[in-house]
């Protein structure tokens, strides 16, 4: 993986890397990728992917609006820059 690829991936992931990181991260990620290549030796023909376990069923609840505790709501909003119960962010467009 080269510097340019890492820069592109970091941009997709919305992470700004500094010059030192751009120098080191490609090698570090490469060492892990090289180790991962081992997987190509495994025969996975006719093997199904395992995404979930058979004993577990989705826990569902009714799709309805719930009023949450005013205190919890206030605590959540207190974490960001809020304005009348909305979070304020920088310009999107």
């Amino acid at each position: 993986m080269n510097k340019k690829e890492v820069e592109k991936l970091a941009f997709f992931a919305r992470i700004k890397l500094d010059d030192e990181e751009l120098k080191n991260v490609p090698g570090e990620v490469d060492s892990i990728l090289k180790y991962i290549q081992k997987l190509s030796n495994a025969n996975t023909e006719n093997v199904e992917s395992l995404f979930h376990f058979p004993e577990l069923k989705n826990v569902v609840r009714k799709d309805e609006a719930k009023t949450i505790d005013r205190e919890v709501q206030k605590r959540m909003m207190a974490m960001g820059k809020d304005k009348d119960d909305y979070l304020r962010v920088e310009a999107i467009l």
């Binding site: 890492v6 991936l9 992931a13 992470i15 991260v25 570090e28 990620v29 892990i32 990728l33």
Partner: peptide, 10 residues
């Protein structure tokens, strides 16, 4: 965290 996010994105 950065390394793992970049690897996962890849």
């Amino acid at each position: 965290a950065k390394r793992r996010i970049i690897l996962g994105t890849y």
